[in-house]
Computed example of a mutant assay.
Amino acid sequence: MTKLTVWFDGGCPLCRREIALMRRLDRAGAIAFVDLGVAGHGDCPVDRADLLARFHAREDGRLVSGAAAFAAMWRAIPGLRPLGLAARNPLVLAGLERLYRAFLRLRPRLQRMAGRREGAPA
């Protein structure tokens, strides 16, 4: 199986939650997760600010971002693979990209909410 590399913002509480879930689902260890806050950005040819602004992954040597990066990650996880394969359809991927861009507008508010929840007493 080809290793997929995913770069994520470990300083973002929302991102940490998403990546924690993906790590649990990735039982085969098919994904190399790179925390930009700890490891820098490794061999990614994209500038750090761009990596933090938009989700990026490298699948089969090809750099993808946004919904395409999520779809690549889903394809690497058996339970999510059908969704990732469906995203190979250009119309499906375009729809997912529209949803991703809408999410990016909400992301700052969601990050604040997730941060407050992490800081809340148990």
Results as ranks from 00 to 15, higher is better:
96 L>W: 01
27 R>E: 13
89 N>G: 09
26 D>W: 01
15 C>L: 03
35 D>G: 12
113 M>H: 06
47 D>F: 12
63 L>G: 13
65 S>R: 10
59 E>Y: 14
16 R>Q: 09
120 A>G: 05
103 F>Q: 08
116 R>S: 03
122 A>H: 14
1 M>D: 15
104 L>F: 11
91 L>M: 05
98 R>H: 10
54 R>C: 04
119 G>L: 15
58 R>F: 11
73 M>G: 04
40 G>L: 09
112 R>D: 12
48 R>W: 06
27 R>C: 00
38 V>I: 08
53 A>P: 04
86 A>L: 11
44 C>E: 15
118 E>I: 15
50 D>K: 15
121 P>D: 12
55 F>C: 06
69 A>E: 11
49 A>I: 10
37 G>C: 10
113 M>C: 12
44 C>G: 11
73 M>P: 00
35 D>H: 06
40 G>N: 06
73 M>Y: 01
74 W>K: 03
48 R>I: 15
61 G>M: 14
11 G>F: 07
82 P>Y: 12
121 P>N: 08
61 G>D: 08
89 N>L: 06
48 R>M: 15
2 T>F: 02
53 A>T: 09
43 D>H: 13
76 A>Y: 03
121 P>G: 10
62 R>K: 13
58 R>L: 10
82 P>W: 14
93 L>T: 01
65 S>C: 14
111 Q>Y: 11
12 C>W: 10
53 A>H: 09
75 R>T: 07
5 T>P: 07
110 L>I: 05
43 D>N: 15
100 Y>I: 02
82 P>G: 05
44 C>P: 04
79 G>V: 13
58 R>Y: 09
50 D>T: 10
83 L>H: 09
53 A>K: 13
50 D>H: 13
102 A>F: 07
36 L>V: 09
79 G>N: 02
56 H>W: 10
99 L>I: 10
5 T>A: 03
109 R>W: 14
78 P>N: 07
11 G>N: 08
79 G>D: 13
70 F>K: 00
85 L>I: 06
51 L>E: 02
119 G>Y: 04
28 A>T: 05
115 G>P: 05
121 P>Q: 09
35 D>I: 00
112 R>P: 00
105 R>W: 12
38 V>P: 10
115 G>W: 05
57 A>H: 06
92 V>T: 06
68 A>M: 00
115 G>E: 10
19 I>Y: 00
93 L>F: 04
121 P>L: 15
99 L>R: 14
25 L>Q: 13
63 L>F: 11
95 G>L: 08
22 M>C: 03
111 Q>M: 08
72 A>G: 03
51 L>C: 03
74 W>M: 11
75 R>Y: 02
12 C>D: 06
23 R>C: 01
97 E>V: 01
67 A>C: 07
9 D>M: 11
5 T>W: 11
53 A>I: 11
22 M>F: 15
39 A>Y: 07
27 R>P: 01
47 D>E: 14
97 E>F: 00
47 D>K: 12
31 I>C: 03
49 A>G: 02
27 R>L: 02
85 L>F: 05
87 A>W: 00
17 R>H: 15
49 A>M: 13
111 Q>S: 07
28 A>R: 11
107 R>D: 06
45 P>T: 15
72 A>L: 05
7 W>A: 03
86 A>G: 07
85 L>C: 02
68 A>T: 09
89 N>V: 11
67 A>E: 09
18 E>G: 11
70 F>W: 06
95 G>W: 01
